[in-house]
């Protein structure tokens, strides 16, 4: 019962919802990236590693140039480069996308520490680097509204970018030629090829878009609120994005809500740290809840499919 009180107390604070959006941002950006890749028919496991590399690059570039903007561009560019490497192996050399993704993640987890040590002489975190953060933004008018202002205004610039990108990606899939080509290639590569779409090119573009979006997520992690890089700081967010992406089933708006589930859980976890629940249970909660939601989603899809098949069979007998 006490726990319920604690949860209720957390839910009644506007700051809770602010933290929810904050935690959801990197997952949301990566979910969008995973979605674009997945709709083109490539399962991009490399997101985790891409994000990790981008967060290191963002910190290093911003520390050396003393410009947050250039640091951000560096992070995004690193996402672009990694996705190109992945695309080269998957599309050109016909590697298994999942295994290549695991290779890139292995490379990222060791390689980032290797580079961090080269630059700072430390393996844990980039505390000795004077890196910069990207700014937060107050929205005029909205910031003055009580409660809603606290929740929606004053966020990190990339949080707003992510929300805008939800609309952009949604629009892209619904109304643009590129979006339709990506969907066509993902659903039926042979049919797409036969109407003159270059499957390889479209898949390449999709992978690059996913790399760039994930690069932004990396920049958010290390140039957002924390302002430093620490080894393994992505903590599975790239994998979570694979699940939220699957829940979204190609719809960017649903993807946003799925990411908010994760944001909600990790925000709640933060608020419950002072309660009596053991810390480890709080830490594992976001992962567990995403598994549950994802599995329920899969079960629902499967059930609908069965129903449809059953109905079809009924229909067939009617005709006969």
């Amino acid at each position: 019962m006490e726990i319920l009180n604690d949860i209720w107390a957390a839910l009644s604070v506007p700051d809770f919802y602010f933290a929810m959006f904050r935690s959801a941002t990197p997952v949301l950006l990566t979910t969008l990236g995973a979605m674009v890749a997945s709709r083109s028919g490539t399962n991009n496991i490399a997101l985790e590693g891409t994000m990790l590399i981008a967060s290191l690059v963002g910190v290093v570039v911003s520390a050396f140039t003393q410009s947050a903007l250039i640091g951000f561009l560096g992070a995004v560019f690193s996402g672009f480069v990694i996705s190109n490497i992945l695309a080269y192996f998957v599309l050109k050399l016909k590697s298994n996308a999942v295994i290549s993704g695991i290779a890139i993640n292995t490379f990222a987890s060791g390689g980032t520490i290797f580079v961090l040590y080269l630059i700072t002489g430390e393996k844990g975190a980039s505390t000795s680097l004077h890196s910069l953060k990207l700014p937060s933004i107050n929205i005029p008018v909205i910031q003055d509204i009580p409660v809603i202002g606290t929740i929606l205004s004053g966020h990190h610039i990339l949080t707003y970018v992510a929300i805008i990108l939800v609309a952009v990606i949604w629009y892209m899939f619904k109304y643009t030629k590129l979006g339709m080509h990506i969907r066509a290639v993902g659903e039926s590569p042979d049919a797409a090829e036969s109407v003159g779409i270059s499957v390889k090119k479209v898949k390449y573009i999709a992978l690059v878009i996913s790399g760039i979006l994930t690069g932004m997520a990396g920049a958010f992690l290390s140039m957002g609120y924390v302002g430093l890089f620490s080894s393994g700081m992505t903590a599975g967010r790239g994998y979570i994005a694979l699940a939220t992406q699957a829940i979204a089933a190609g719809n960017a708006v649903v993807g946003m809500f799925a990411s908010l589930i994760f944001g909600f859980c990790s925000s709640l976890a933060n608020y419950l740290q002072s309660s009596g629940i053991p810390l480890q249970f709080i830490q594992l909660m976001p992962y567990l809840i995403i598994i549950v939601v994802y599995t329920c989603y899969c079960a629902m899809v499967e059930k609908n499919k069965m129903k449809r098949q059953l109905n079809q069979k009924k229909g067939e007998t009617h005709v006969k």
Partner: peptide
């Protein structure tokens, strides 16, 4: 530093599994 190994590991996985390599 010994993290060099994970770079070697990644390169090996990438090239060995590349069908068209």
């Amino acid at each position: 530093q010994n993290e060099l190994v994970s770079i070697v590991q990644a390169v090996l996985i990438l090239f060995i599994t590349a069908e068209r390599f």
